[in-house]
């Protein structure tokens, strides 16, 4: 796939899956997309292992943009990126944006073939408003 991939990380699998449904509705299969939610025991929370697997599923050589909801999702996503091999880690970014709106905006931008930097900038415009 030649478009930037999107990963959605929420404390809640329902939120992550719902946000992914909204992204699919917008861009169909034009963008590699994966989501994860819930802690390693299935409760509300996030899991580094699940984030790593989601990055793998949404992998694109043009990069992957991660959208997160609350603090732990961001910290665990940063941890996951550091655990990737360095060549891959340099192509994964976390967007400072609201998870649902950010994912839809980022994916829409990605579907047009935008670079990883442009995808992130588009998502982060939401926080700048």
């Amino acid at each position: 796939m030649s478009n930037v991939g999107i990963v959605i990380v929420s404390h809640s699998p329902l939120v992550a899956e719902g946000a992914a449904d909204m992204v699919r509705g917008m861009v169909g299969d034009e963008v590699p997309l994966a989501w994860c939610g819930g802690d390693p025991a299935g409760g509300l929370g996030t899991s580094v292992e699940a984030i790593l697997a989601a990055v793998e599923r949404a992998w694109s050589d043009r990069g992957v943009a991660i959208l997160v909801d609350l603090g732990g999702a961001e910290t665990n996503s940063e941890m996951a990126i550091e655990m990737l091999d360095p060549a891959r880690a340099s192509k994964v970014v976390i967007c400072n944006a609201p998870v649902v709106e950010g994912a839809v905006m980022a994916a829409t931008e990605a579907s047009g073939g935008a670079t990883l930097d442009a995808v992130r900038a588009t998502a982060e415009e939401l926080s700048a408003r």
């Binding site: 390693p40 580094v48 732990g72 910290t75 665990n76 941890m79």
Partner: peptide, 14 residues
């Protein structure tokens, strides 16, 4: 890091 979840996993893990 892999099992705790939440923010305490990455913090104590780090």
């Amino acid at each position: 890091v892999m099992t705790v979840g939440g923010a305490s996993g990455p913090l104590y893990g780090t």
